Simulated scan of single mutants.
Amino acid sequence: MNITILLKLLFAHIFADFVLQTNRICDGKKAAGKTIYIYLLLHSLIHAATAYLLVARWDAWIIPSVIFSTHFAMDYIKSTYMKENMVSFIIDQVVHIAVIIVLWLCLLGRDADWGTAFSGIWDGNKVWIVVTAYMLALKPTSVLLNLFIKQWMPHDSKNDDTLPHAGLWIGYLERFLILTFIFTHNFEGIGFLLAAKSIFRFGELNKAKEIKITEYVLIGTLASFAIATGIGFFALQIL
């Protein structure tokens, strides 16, 4: 069974849903009237085109057809009838991944020669596993973490002295480093990274009146480390 097709479909979904989906598209899917349909169509077309181009099986029109129709339907249901929380996010992603798995199984039943001159590199299973793991640890994990920890966000935690989007990029970098340490078997680097971040945070979070912010930061940090470590070791087992 060619697992590369599945990896490409999963990567296409993550890339289209979390990289190519801009804030304007995300807001447009929540708009009223005809506007919501315009952005749902645009977002679904981006998903369908990304999957079709990455799989590069030009005779398999089932790929863009299924991806487009199911993504449009699920996003419409989510935008119209579901609340914006962690549960709806997980349900949405589970449905999309289930569709991808079913589509992959359908593609395996077809006989076609879809190899290319770059198949040795482009179809390398290990490459796609690693790339998908890195992609999954970035934006999708950030969205999930934000939905998870916002219930504990202190009302007085806003600070105008912080750099714009600094926390977001710190999370990206720490999860990138964790995966790199795991893939290179330098597991001690994860402990060093956690210790270094704790030292930097200690100076600003050692006051009794800031205990809520301290706990909030710890929850976010440990959740980020746990997800990145889980993704890394799961990918490592597949490899």
Rank of each mutant, 00 (worst) to 15 (best):
P64Y: 10
H96F: 10
L105G: 11
Y134V: 07
W128T: 03
V130K: 06
G109W: 07
H71C: 05
I90C: 07
V102S: 12
D123W: 11
Y134F: 15
H96C: 12
I63V: 06
A137H: 03
C106F: 14
W114Q: 06
D156V: 07
V99H: 08
S69N: 02
L108Y: 02
Q151N: 14
R57F: 05
Q93V: 06
F68S: 00
L54A: 03
K83P: 00
H155F: 05
H43W: 07
W128P: 04
G124K: 09
L45N: 11
V94H: 02
W61F: 15
G124F: 10
W152D: 08
T116P: 00
V94M: 12
N125V: 13
P140I: 02
S142V: 08
L54R: 06
F68Y: 14
T50N: 07
I62V: 14
M135D: 01
A112W: 11
L145K: 10
S44C: 08
L54F: 13
C106I: 13
Y52Q: 08
A49E: 07
T141P: 02
S119E: 08
T80P: 00
Q151L: 06
W152V: 03
S142K: 05
L105T: 09
S119M: 09
S157W: 08
K150Y: 11
V95M: 14
A51G: 15
L147A: 08
A137Q: 01
I121T: 08
V66W: 05
D123C: 02
D113E: 13
V102L: 15
G109H: 03
L103M: 06
L107V: 03
E84A: 14
Y134T: 08
H43M: 07
A56S: 13
A51T: 06
Q93G: 00
V127R: 10
S65R: 05
L54T: 09
S79H: 00
K126I: 10
